[in-house]
């Protein structure tokens, strides 16, 4: 069994329901995302087009994050899911350096790496991932890509020629496919991130990684001072994220 994901970008309408469902299902803290939907605008008014691209872990067959993890916190499950054991993670961020898709984040509450697990806990109970269940247009298709009769396998076969993965040149063999994707939606170098062009905020980059309120010394003192409970309010106190960097 090899579980895979397919997103039909022709169907996706950018409602971000999957993003929210993921956040709720997995208690993903503020400033972190396991799944996000990116909007890219193409063209000049009035000839414009907006593309929506849901981005999550690709659960690569040849996962660089699994290879670089020094303590096997990132590991393969038998069904092909690249899972993470946050109890073992040392927070070296090697996986964040290795993942070509930027799918791994440093959880500000646990100070360990985390990412999409295809809702492994739900799958174990025979349920679909939260983002699949919530999608109002069934743009998210999930299943066993080793099984030729599964919905995802049939969908891939029906859309031969229009099925893509992100960064195939990285030889990671991703198990996350896109139908109807263009260069602008799948290639991060094909678009610009310009300060001020975002719809709802002007922040393009986070200057901190992990908990912005926790200094290096705090990491050492934490076991002796007791775990400070973090909630969303404390996470909203962070400063310095109004970066002037716009990328290119």
């Amino acid at each position: 069994m090899k579980l895979g994901f397919l997103v039909d970008l022709n169907l996706c309408m950018g409602c971000k329901g999957c993003e929210i469902a993921c956040k709720v299902e997995n208690n993903v803290p503020l400033s972190s995302w396991r799944l996000r939907v990116k909007y890219v605008d193409i063209g000049v008014f009035p000839e414009t087009k907006r593309e929506f691209t849901p981005l999550r872990c690709n659960h690569c067959e040849n996962a660089p994050c699994e290879r670089i993890c020094p303590v096997s916190a990132l590991h393969y499950l038998e069904n092909g899911i690249v899972n993470i054991d946050s109890e073992r993670c040392i927070g070296c961020a090697g996986c964040m350096m290795a993942c070509p898709y930027g799918a791994i984040y440093m959880d500000p509450e646990s100070n360990t790496a985390d990412k999409c697990t295809y809702c492994a806990h739900r799958i174990e109970s025979g349920m679909m991932p939260a983002c699949v269940v919530i999608c109002p247009v069934q743009a998210n298709i999930f299943g066993d890509v080793d099984d030729d009769t599964s919905h995802i396998s049939r969908y891939i076969m029906e859309h031969q020629g229009d099925v893509q993965v992100r960064k195939p040149e990285k030889n990671t063999n991703p198990k996350h496919y896109y139908v109807g994707g263009g260069n602008q939606s799948l290639n991060p170098l094909a678009y610009e991130r310009i300060e001020g062009y975002s719809l709802f905020d002007k922040i393009t980059h986070l200057e901190h990684v992990g908990n912005p309120n926790e200094g290096v010394i705090d990491r050492f003192l934490k076991p002796f001072t007791g775990e400070e409970e973090l909630d969303n309010t404390s996470m909203m106190d962070w400063k310095g994220s109004s970066s002037s960097e716009g990328g290119h």
Binding site: V37, Y39, V40, G102, Q184
Partner: peptide
């Protein structure tokens, strides 16, 4: 193409 809505991405890790 321009990104018009996305989450902030981490800078220097």
């Amino acid at each position: 193409a321009v990104v018009t809505l996305d989450v902030p991405i981490p800078q220097i890790i």
